[in-house]
């Protein structure tokens, strides 16, 4: 399965069913982050229910320093 994550097309080695699993596979489970899945912004509790398919677009963002 290929996913477009933050503008990069990424071939997933492992099977990932949903956004929560994807975050786990990426090793980012303990990070404070926000996911937009196919233009839909997800709350954390929605990650599990967001099923992934080939070609899905994801934006994974977080807070960085700013004024």
């Amino acid at each position: 399965m290929k996913l477009l994550i933050n503008g990069d097309l990424i071939q997933m080695e492992e099977n990932v069913e949903n956004v929560e699993e994807l975050i786990g596979v990426l090793g980012l489970s303990d990070k404070s982050l926000i996911v937009e899945h196919n233009q839909i912004i997800l709350k954390k509790q929605d990650h599990m229910g967001a099923s992934l398919s080939d070609g899905d677009q994801l934006e994974i963002v977080h807070f960085v320093g700013g004024g």
Binding site: I5, N6, G7, L26, G27, L28, K31, S32, L33, I34, E59, I60, V61, H62, F63, V64, G65, G66, G67
Partner: peptide
């Protein structure tokens, strides 16, 4: 205040001030 930006998904460390 903070800004919102893309994460580097390949960097598992990336400490965050929060």
């Amino acid at each position: 205040t903070f800004a919102v930006r893309r994460m580097n998904i390949f960097d598992k460390e990336q400490p965050n001030f929060l």
